[in-house]
């Protein structure tokens, strides 16, 4: 149980996928103009990460049995992820139409989100079947960490929109500097957990 919570907190905050893992930056900068769309993106990403992480963990065992893991895992995971994103798009379009309209083209863009593939590759490296609590914690913690960061950043961006940034630093440039300051906070928590 302790291992579960340790893994959850460490994947959510200490090894945060954006601030400490540098993944998911394209959608991080692109979607966080409004906090409502950032919220929707976080929810959709949690859904995709959870299922694709578990499926890719299982497939990792299968591929290792057949000795084709080293060169086939990337291709197989990306197939699983892109199909899962299509499936999520269909589900969201049917049951949450307002969320679908908010997300627009960013929903199919989850396929090219580095967070999901990074998670699949990280989880596929677990060779021990008894590491399931850790895997479950990682698969939940990584998208929740991304969700927290994207919500914070969307609030910061909304404030930055109306402030008086100079010298063409508006938009992404000053947002990245703000991200650097957030990264300091996460870096400082490095030895705590």
């Amino acid at each position: 149980m302790v291992a579960f919570y340790t893994a959850l907190l460490s994947s959510m905050i200490v090894s945060n996928s954006v601030l400490a893992g540098y993944k998911g930056l394209c959608s991080y900068l692109g979607i966080s103009k409004k906090s409502s769309s950032a919220f929707g993106m976080g929810v959709a990403l949690t859904f995709v990460c959870f299922f694709s992480g578990l499926i890719c963990w299982g497939l990792g065992f299968l591929l290792r049995e057949l000795e084709i893991y080293d060169f086939m895992f990337t291709i197989v995971s990306i197939l699983v992820i892109s199909s899962l994103v299509q499936f999520t798009e269909l589900v969201i379009k049917k049951f949450f139409p307002s969320l679908y309209k908010t997300l627009g083209i960013y929903l199919p863009l989850i396929t090219t989100n580095c967070v999901v593939l990074g998670l699949a590759l990280q989880v596929g490296a677990y060779t021990d079947a008894s590491s399931f609590p850790e895997v479950l914690a990682t698969v939940l913690g990584v998208p929740l960490g991304y969700f927290i960061v994207i919500m914070l950043f969307s609030c910061i961006q909304e404030r930055l929109e109306t402030s008086n940034t100079k010298y063409n630093f508006k938009g992404a440039a000053i947002g990245l500097v703000a991200t650097a300051i957030m990264a300091i906070a996460v870096y400082g928590l490095g030895g705590v957990i």
Partner: peptide, 28 residues
């Protein structure tokens, strides 16, 4: 490390936009 990475990247994006005198960088 990461912090310096974000900082340098942000500053260079802004400087590039300033030098080429283009509009705000970004998709939208």
């Amino acid at each position: 490390q990461g912090i310096g990475g974000f900082l340098t990247f942000g500053i260079i994006v802004g400087l590039f936009a300033w030098i080429t005198k283009s509009k705000v960088p970004g998709k939208n």
